[in-house]
Simulated scan of single mutants.
Amino acid sequence: MEQAQMKLMIPGPVEVDPKVLAALSEPVEPHYGDAWVKKYARVIDILRQIFNVAGKNYDVYLMVGSGTCAIDASMSSSLMRGEKIIIGNNGFFGGRLIEVAKNAGLNIVEVPGEWGKPLDPQAIKKALDANPDAKAVSVVHGETSTTVLNPVKEIGAIVAASEAIFLVDAVSSFGGIPFDMEDWNVDICASATQKCLGALPGLAPVSVSQKGWKTIDRSFDKGHSWYTNLQNWRKYGTEWADWHPTPVTMPTNNVNALLVALEQLMEEGIENRIQRYRSLALRLRKGLREAGMEPYTSDEMLNPVLTAAYAPEGHKSGEIIQYLLNEHHIQIGGGLGHLKDVVFRIGHMSPVVTEADIDRVVDALKAF
């Protein structure tokens, strides 16, 4: 009997369209020259539309690395060792922001939040008022560990009234959840390509505002790597724009695959894609409840691209994960931190996930 194909529904990386994969098998091309510059410019143009930035007030770059590479670059390019950063932390990846900041030698003011609940913008304001010398505020948009979406717009309005810059981790939300970098007063945003964009791991979009550049361009000894210095990405993106727009060799096939995924997004329409993700989330939540497995967050707090649910009473979440993997060839994610044995997480952030895929998961869970 032929074994069913494995269905990947973890919180990233995601399954990608066959046309995206096909781009990887094309002949390798150089990362410079007229043809490449034209293609790369199209990638940047689409990324700008997803970031919701226009004109010359924001720059967009495509770094080679994971989303954490882009976060690392954002912090270490902006702040000097010993400078103060306020970090909202209500999940595992909020904790990751703190780890990155510690590695950069920054003075961290943590604003703790409860796992499973959004950060309180007023708590951020209180921290800013108490620390007027803070140079930056940083939060995660979509906290992957809990599926909670943090109020970036509200926090951004608070940060904009200060001298601090606003750094946002949008790794698991970019392209699948409404995001408006300009309207939300985000100064530096870091993301990745292997989640909602439906592309491969290894590329990390970054966008920087003029306020962000003002902080980055202060005269000081940065004391960090050349590779993650955003000034170098800007230098090549301007001075070498007509033939070699990046400071490093780009994985050209991976960028070509990303372009296929981005063109598919534009063909569907960003708003249509986001609405489709939301419909899938609601369908999954309904099915989870029918299976006796309550979603971790309320429907009012739903994340359109990722859903966490409690394991049934008397069972650990790992049992659900192994059951789906072994019996139904569906791979989902487990909980992180203290939620490891409590919840499981189902990613529906891939553009190729359909209602039939959601139903397959739900039917399997009902049979547990």
Rank of each mutant, 00 (worst) to 15 (best):
S138R: 02
E2R: 12
V16A: 12
L200Q: 00
I10G: 15
V168H: 10
K195M: 11
P205Q: 07
S219R: 12
A291Q: 08
T252P: 03
P178S: 09
P304W: 04
E271A: 13
L128V: 00
S172E: 12
G175L: 07
A127C: 08
V14K: 09
M181R: 02
V60M: 11
Q3I: 03
T144F: 00
W226G: 09
S298M: 05
Y296V: 03
G212W: 07
K286I: 01
I98D: 14
A4M: 08
R81A: 14
N326L: 07
H31A: 10
V255E: 14
M349T: 05
E263G: 02
I274G: 15
R278Y: 04
K38W: 00
S76L: 03
M301N: 12
I50A: 14
W213A: 11
E319Q: 12
A35K: 12
F174C: 08
I165T: 10
K135I: 00
A157W: 04
P251I: 01
I86N: 14
V14E: 03
V43G: 14
A22G: 11
E2M: 09
P304T: 05
M293T: 03
E267S: 00
N256C: 04
A291C: 03
Q264N: 11
P351N: 02
D357E: 06
G91C: 01
N232S: 07
D221L: 10
W243M: 05
M1P: 11
K214C: 09
D299S: 09
E327T: 04
V139T: 13
E26I: 00
Q5N: 07
A356W: 03
V352L: 12
R283E: 14
A134N: 14
Y236K: 11
S209C: 08
G65S: 06
F92C: 00
L288N: 11
G337P: 01
